[in-house]
Design a protein around this nucleic acid. Structure first.
Length: 572
DNA sequence: GCCGTTTTCGGCCCGACTGTTTTCAGTCG
């Protein structure tokens, strides 16, 4: 059974090979659009069974036939024909910065080069000396691109990229005067991992800003440097782009560089039908010649007659249609959060004291939060029943000093058979229970599915912590079966904001909502400085299209206590 | 190859930067 992502990858493989083969631009771009459409669609097996493949955007009769072949057999006639012409390793060359399809086609046809190794050998042998359009600078760029590719095969996790972006912004602020400055791109859209960092700023003297940027001591290489735009690589190959324009264009600039590419294409296609040309330089009326510049991003969407689309929703799926119809979801915001259910202290594996963590939760303005240290089977640091009672007493002893309600909770291990690390009598003493998988990640799909459903069915379990394991352990389970069980039993599903987790990821959170489940947005913090990690979870929630009604810790304390009581009540 | 508030044909987002060019093709986002 192939996943949507695997089918989409096959379509992209076809798309790239078609471009190499010299097919028309619009023909191979149709495959790229189809791949994006598949990636965000419901599971293909279901779609095909329902006879709804042709209803997906960007899928016509021709590509539908290819997809059906791919799903049924793992390959397709079209793909087989292309692979008969080009070795599969040839596509690796496209991953090298500075090498595109035209170059790959030339390398293959004129030099028989079909892999990264072939290219490195040819450069070392000096085979390109005197060749047309392959001067010394071009060859040097390829060498640099090869080095970067070999040293960097992963995307950068959002929390890591955000820290680097803030460092770069702080550096830029030390230089010549800038007006507005921020990060854009996939970072602003809160993608779980990013390929590069996009910075934009407005300044009266753009050239000075660019000059200061490329002089950054952290820059290992300057990839491009022009009048309004520069790109550099850090030592590990991470690329940072800076674009500078005058301040009256800030709204256009921010909209343009926030993307996504697919969102901008759809937005501009819509604009073209209304005789408007949208770019970072303004909105040009093709009839009158007037160019509308926008100091604020919201003005761009308003000028196109649609509702403002939050960055997290700019995926190129259906957000333009929803914005035109005025039916975009009202996304949950930071100020909607009233609590955090997932915080650790030195009582288990946290770095800060109980009191410090309570104070930190209060400092964020929460009305309530839960202290949820690990249960006894988590090595030496897990709490047993006696220690849990001691902790409850310690919480009581602090009284209402910080003006926040602290719920006594536990993050209980879900054991391999789906039972819990504490018996019901112990759980009954708690205000709130998180149940999480921390062991036996290698269970097969059916076993893991049954394990998670059994945890949901325990009347004292209120929340499944980091449910999918993404980021830590990529175990598999039947998503719909577990999410539906969570909805049926009154068990919430967590979006965990711990750096390296961000679990549930946004597509799964979207799915969980569709199954009717309640979600939570938590920090899973182990120290005071990480309580704000809840904002990473919030980003995933917003990308999933969640409103405050979808999130348990956006509800008042009374509603949370009622949520817990209702599940216990149903169990009798 | 796909699509439609100019709908079954004729379009399909937009612009910056580089290298090697005497005016532009290729790459990137």
């Amino acid at each position: 059974m192939a996943t949507n992502a695997e089918i989409a990858a096959r379509l992209m493989q076809i798309r790239k090979l078609m471009e190499l083969a010299g097919e028309s631009f619009y023909k191979y771009m149709a495959f790229e659009k189809a791949a994006a459409s598949i990636e965000s669609a419901a599971p293909l097996d279901d779609v095909i069974a329902a006879g709804e493949l042709l209803a997906l955007p960007g899928i016509g009769k021709s590509i539908a036939g290819v997809i059906e072949q791919l799903v049924a057999t793992g390959t397709a006639d079209l793909l087989d024909d292309l692979l008969a012409r080009y070795p599969p390793t040839i596509l690796d060359l496209l991953a090298v910065s500075g090498i595109g399809t035209k170059t790959v086609a030339t390398l293959f046809e004129s030099y028989g080069i079909a892999s990264l190794d072939d290219l490195e050998r040819a450069i070392a042998d000096g085979r390109f000396e005197g060749a047309p359009r392959m001067g010394p600078k071009t060859i040097a760029n390829w060498k640099r691109g090869l080095l970067a590719y070999r040293g960097r095969l992963r995307r950068t996790p959002l929390p890591e990229a955000l820290a680097i972006a803030r460092e770069a912004i702080a550096y830029l602020r030390e230089g010549p005067p800038l007006e507005r400055l921020t990060y854009a791109g996939s970072l602003r859209r809160q993608e779980r991992s990013v390929g590069d960092i996009d910075l934009i700023c407005t300044a009266a003297d753009g050239a000075a800003a660019i000059a200061h940027f490329v002089a950054w001591e952290r820059a290992a290489a300057i990839v491009a440097e022009g009048a309004t735009k520069a790109s550099l690589w850090l030592a590990d190959g991470l690329q940072i782009d800076l674009r500078v324009l005058p301040d009256h264009l800030y709204g256009n600039l921010l909209q343009h560089f926030t993307g996504s590419r697919e969102h901008n294409i759809k937005l501009r296609e819509y604009a073209v039908r209304r005789n408007l040309r949208v770019s970072e330089n303004g909105i040009l009326n093709l009839e009158t010649g007037d160019n509308l510049t926008c100091a604020h991003e919201a003005d761009v969407y308003a000028a196109l007659g649609m509702a403002y689309v939050p960055p997290e929703l700019r995926s190129g799926l259906d957000e333009i249609e929803l914005a035109l119809a005025g039916t975009l979801p009202v996304l949950i915001e930071k100020d909607d959060l009233r609590g955090d259910f997932h915080m650790h202290t030195t009582w288990s594996d946290g770095d800060d004291s109980l009191e410090a963590m309570i104070a930190a939760a209060a400092a964020r303005g929460y009305a309530y939060h839960a202290i949820s240290d690990h249960s006894r089977s988590r090595g030496s640091f897990g709490l047993d029943r006696a220690r849990l009672r001691e902790q409850r007493a310690a919480i009581a002893a602090l009284g209402n000093r910080y003006g926040i309600r602290t719920l006594c909770a536990s993050e209980v291990d879900i054991l391999p058979d789906g039972t819990l690390d504490f018996d019901d009598a112990t759980l009954r003493e708690l205000d709130f229970t998180i149940a999480s998988v921390h062991t036996a990640y290698d269970q097969d799909r059916a076993t893991m599915t049954a394990r998670l459903i059994r945890a949901c069915e325990n009347p004292y379990v209120n929340l499944i912590g980091h449910p999918s394991g993404r980021g830590y352990a990529e175990y598999t389970f039947d998503l719909d079966a577990v999410f539906t069980a969570a909805a049926r039993t009154g068990t919430a599903l967590e979006i965990d904001g711990q750096k390296g987790r961000l679990d549930l990821p946004d597509p799964l959170a979207r799915r969980a909502k569709a199954c009717g489940a309640m979600l939570c947005v938590d920090s899973d913090s182990h120290r005071v400085g990480d309580v704000s990690d809840v904002e990473f979870a919030l980003g995933q929630a917003r990308r999933a299209g969640l409103t405050k009604d979808d999130v348990l810790n956006a509800q008042p304390l009374d509603a949370v206590l009622a949520f817990v009581a209702a599940k216990r009540g149903r169990a009798g």
